[in-house]
Amino acid sequence: MSHSTTIEVALPFDDAQQQRSAAILGMWIFLATEILFFGGLFVGYAVYRYEYFEAFREGSHEMSVVGGGLMTAVLLIGSLLVAISDHAIEEASADIDQRKLRRRLGGYLGATTLLGVAFLSMEFYEYYELIHKGLFPGPGFDASSFPASVRDTQTIQMYFTLFFCMTGLHALHMVIGISLVGGMAVLLSRSEHPQRYANLLTGIGLYWHFVDVIWIFLYPLFYLVR
């Protein structure tokens, strides 16, 4: 174990290997929880899309396919950078130049943070446009631009309700992810021994990838219905 020299083993554990296994397993279980958390909304999506397919098709036309695709790409680049950082911190031997490692990690994670901010900016701009068009669900919802089949039944509103709920919950996760990755960028670029935080980085990385995966599903489900 290359880490055992730098990591203090917490009380319940026998060695660093066991502690790392616990951190990773704990994170995966948390992600299983998250799958079910979003899962409730995906069930809602499935039900209403099954019942009101026409409304979903119409609603989807309001979304920018290219914009959504760009957002997906931005997230995937971020994921790549996080994966590289995780790889770097794990594989680095104890005698590696710590300063160089610090700089690399700070750079990758800093860039990821910026990409996350870029994603959110695009998303919020989209929200802004939709709200401007009167498409925020609720009493002020303006369905006049939609065909009568989905306007008079109000079903078109359901598409936008689900859109804002699901992408909103995703955006909340992005905010948390950006804070965590940004925090790691600062922490690691200042740390004497960045490897001490390898488990933390792996855990945060898993979370970041997970938030990515959710978007991988949200994109076709909301932008590509036609």
Binding site: F38, G39, G40
Partner: peptide
């Protein structure tokens, strides 16, 4: 595995009450 689904169900009630949207309201689908 179960608790998060309750969380989301309760959150949807709150969303419906706060924003007056119709996730569970038959009047608007």
């Amino acid at each position: 595995l179960a608790t998060p689904v309750l969380a989301v169900a309760l959150a949807l009630i709150a969303v419906e009450r706060i924003f007056h949207v119709g996730i569970f309201d038959p009047a608007i689908g």
